[in-house]
């Protein structure tokens, strides 16, 4: 199979598009940057791609709420074409603002009778925070996390606190292995993960969620910010590792089409 094509979606306020495209290319993909206006005008162009990525940033300023406006735009204009894309066995990844958009548009966790099952809201601190966190995976289902047990990645957001509608929703997602990524301590334990290890107060320390197929994945941490040894905050004291923890996630996405 030739290099998978990656559509990096841009919108007003998207700002992690370049480095995310670079990470996919480094992993063996072929990234293009497409503006939301262009996709709404010609939705058919998405058929040329195998991976759709919604990168980080502040789409439409995160006005009203993070990712809200782009989510409603996608819901009203792109619902059909995205369902077709997903049904074709392709991959969708949302990082940070992309995760917020995926969850608020209902693409990641569809609405039921009572509405959306979960959302991402303001950090408990009420502020934007940039720091590094330890993460633990449940990779039973999630395509992007195959063979990854633990990661160390940076987060940078104000609205990353995962809140499910109720306990049942949470338990269902957990049993179903959809709570694919969670904040943990450096040793991998995640029984009692307080601030700043759980940087935003997420319920059950949730940092990333996948859909029932494992082919749609959204996460708050930024894997594209740890694809080089010098990205690590302590590389000058702990020595160089071969690559950053984040690169494997992009490689998994590419390899999904090569296997």
């Amino acid at each position: 199979m030739p290099q998978p094509n990656v559509l990096i979606l841009r919108a007003p306020g998207t700002n992690c598009d370049q480095e995310t495209g670079y990470a996919f290319d480094l992993a063996g993909g072929n990234s293009s940057f497409v503006h939301i206006n262009q996709l709404i005008e010609s939705p058919g162009i998405i058929r040329d791609y195998q991976i759709l990525c919604l990168p980080g940033g502040f789409s439409y300023g995160d006005d009203i709420a993070a990712g809200r406006i782009l989510a409603s735009q996608m819901q009203s204009r792109l619902a059909d074409v995205l369902s077709e894309f997903h049904a074709a066995g392709k991959l969708i990844l949302g990082i940070c603002n992309g995760f917020q958009i995926l969850i608020k548009s209902g693409f990641l966790l569809p609405s039921d009778d009572e509405g959306l099952p979960a959302t991402l809201t303001w950090n408990d601190s009420g502020r934007f925070i940039d720091c590094w966190v330890n993460l633990k995976t449940d990779n039973e289902r999630c395509v992007f996390l195959q063979n990854i047990e633990q990661m160390y990645l940076p987060i940078a957001h104000a609205e990353g606190k995962f809140v499910p509608r109720n306990e049942q929703v949470l338990n269902h997602l957990k049993t179903n292995h959809q709570l694919a990524l969670s904040y943990c301590l450096a040793d991998g334990s995640n029984d009692e993960v307080a601030y700043p290890h759980n940087p935003n107060g997420s319920t059950a320390n949730v940092a990333g969620v996948c859909d029932t197929t494992g082919r749609i994945f959204g996460l708050m941490p930024h894997p594209e910010r740890f694809i080089d040894p010098t990205h690590h905050p302590r590389w000058t004291r702990e020595g160089n590792s071969a690559a950053g923890d984040g690169l494997a996630l992009f490689q998994n996405a590419i390899n999904f089409f090569n296997d």
Binding site: C16, E19, I129, D130, H222, R225, T230, H231
Partner: peptide
């Protein structure tokens, strides 16, 4: 410092806060 995104654009090498506990 923690309220500023100091890593966007993917080129961070030496961050404003460093050391064993960052």
């Amino acid at each position: 410092i923690r309220q500023y995104d100091h890593e966007v654009q993917g080129g961070s090498v030496i961050k404003p806060l460093v050391g064993v506990q960052n």
